[in-house]
Write a protein that binds this DNA or RNA. Structure first.
Lengths: 159, 159
DNA sequence: TCATTTTACGTAACCAGTTACATAAAAAAG
DNA sequence: CTTTTTTATGTAACTGGTTACGTAAAATGA
């Protein structure tokens, strides 16, 4: 079966990126379910952040991951429900909720680290004959950070 | 602001792909809204398919785009509501719904083609110093088609 | 020809994101 | 001080995907 998105060349690119990212997401969910791991795809990001910084607020996570704050709230609420994250409110700024990893999280991390390692190795293999992929992805991200996609199109239309 | 996902290297890749694909999706929606165009991101895929094949069923679209059939039904229902798609049921197989572009779609397509052209040119520019991106993306897709991501991990764990 | 299996479509419930809006606390400005 | 603006968080409604399940028609096979 030929891939119509590929045949569209440039016009199919964003849909292919979405397809790839959705595939990774749903297969990873399925993987964790099969292995009976109490974790979701992308929770690793929060674990990694809190490993690196110990304590962070919702907004700090939101900025560092470049995710909207409601998205972070949703992830964090689930991780609180499973007992991986503890929160308390900042004494000097009562608006802020300070997040840190629980003892349970520290213990579970050992299991999680080993599966993440396998996943990373497999992704490495998928990229084994793609030596420019990461670097070129970064170039695209950088360009879009300098000027966003929508604005690029608007400017072009006004030329 | 440094990008934490980038710092995660391989481990941040799938989240970066999701972030990029979400960004393109939401900015494109926003773009069409600003321009008052009665179209959604990814409707172009259906337009292109029906331009190429004139008539297709839900399942044929689903296979060619590698999207689940409920996803196709949702897109197509919206496009029917805006009057771009006409349907009738196959005489010789009453299960099948045959889809084709309406006259309205053919007229609107002229406007849409011109904005898609600008979008494609801009994406081309984003990729201008990424000569391997499309080709390497395809390599990854091919590998995942040969054996899916989940199975790769499972196999590795059983080694 | 009739029972069984497969296929096409549809619906429901879920998921991970978004934007838009509300509220309360902190910071800035008068 | 007090008013105004900004910031941190939370909630609601929406979006474009998914899987799971149901149903009717077609194809298969005994």
């Amino acid at each position: 079966m030929d891939d119509f998105l590929k045949a569209l060349e440039i016009e199919g690119l964003t849909s292919r990126l979405k397809r790839l990212s959705d595939t990774m997401l749903y297969e990873t969910k399925d993987l964790y379910k099969s292995l009976d791991l109490e974790i979701e795809p992308n929770w690793n990001l929060i674990f990694r952040l809190l490993q690196a910084y110990q304590e962070l607020t919702i907004m700090e996570i939101s900025e560092r991951l470049q995710l909207s704050h409601p998205a972070v709230i949703k992830i964090v609420n689930k991780m609180k429900k499973t007992g991986y994250i503890l929160t308390y409110s900042d004494k000097s700024d009562k608006r802020k909720q300070i997040l840190r990893l629980s003892e349970k999280a520290m213990v579970k991390l050992r299991d999680f680290e080993s599966i993440w390692e396998v996943q990373n190795a497999e992704i490495g293999k998928l990229l084994s004959d793609c030596p420019h992929f990461m670097e070129e992805l970064e170039k695209v991200e950088t360009k879009l950070r300098e000027q966003n996609y929508k604005q690029r199109i608007i400017n072009k239309l006004n030329e």
